[in-house]
Design a protein around this nucleic acid. Sequence first.
DNA 1: GTCCATGCAAACCTTTTGCACTATA
DNA 2: TATAGTGCAAAAGGTTTGCATGGAC
Lengths: 166, 166
Amino acid sequence: MTTERDRSAAIRLFGRYLRDLGLPVTQQREVVADVVFGAAGHLSVDDIADTLRGCGERIGKATIYRTLDLLVRSRLVAEHDFGEGFKRYEHRLSNHPIHEHLICLECGKVVEFESNELYRVENNVRREYGFVPVRRRLEIYGLCKECHEAGVELPLEGLTCPIETV
Amino acid sequence: MTTERDRSAAIRLFGRYLRDLGLPVTQQREVVADVVFGAAGHLSVDDIADTLRGCGERIGKATIYRTLDLLVRSRLVAEHDFGEGFKRYEHRLSNHPIHEHLICLECGKVVEFESNELYRVENNVRREYGFVPVRRRLEIYGLCKECHEAGVELPLEGLTCPIETV
DNA sequence: GTCCATGCAAACCTTTTGCACTATA
DNA sequence: TATAGTGCAAAAGGTTTGCATGGAC
């Protein structure tokens, strides 16, 4: 969650970003940004549209998409694709601006975690492949603690013979 | 790349998978599978359709999508989303069935690499969060060796002030 | 002969775009 | 007042689905 102070500070930062680019700071942009900065989790565009509708704000989806594009460019917001067929958006105001995601295949819950090992991985690829890392994405899909403890089993649909032995 | 032997073995495995499920082994399914198993890289559906057209095969896209679904379910093929707006497919017959991807933001090249650190990461999340990992996805975006050596610089569009200091 | 697959086109879903109108600076 | 944004609806692009026909078993 975001504190009220972080939230308004973020909106001011977004305004600064827009002004630096010579773009107008419109009401719609501020309202969309406020929804994103004030939310805890990973919002879909529909989530944002629903929230706005709940507040009595009448903002078109095109404007939401266009504002999200600016928010992502400003790096105040991260865009995610968890394979659901649409994108999700998450502000980066937490104490852990760089984190990865655990996604439960049963209930869809997303847990965030940090991994220091990833820095080692990035150093390795830089050294071994000459590849210069800029950003990364690590998602681990599986069963969250609650689903696992509830005894959920995931059906394995693949070949009975593991392909590694082909 | 796949050897001719692996390729035909894979097609036989796919046939077995279909028969185990009581599904017909059709010509179209075998041809699509053959294209995927015979290709080196990460194929888009259009890549597959083009290859088929080049062979004089007249197979509808719906069939390609439906066959890819079966191939992915059989776990002989992996599905990827590199954020291009469409999926890519890669057979899993290599010597390194589990690998991650380095994706060049400049030229789009995809390099595969393996990371033992990831096992450690998975053990950590299991221990710390009670999360049971099933599959993972690690993609590192950046500049490949060639683009980096060619002096390519990526434009940074974000706020000048890093958000970590908000 | 019974299913199921195929191919085509239409539908679907998210995202993007064109355009007349409105608001910012 | 110039410039850019907004909202709506239409378009775009990848993927899925319905349905009549054809093929697998």
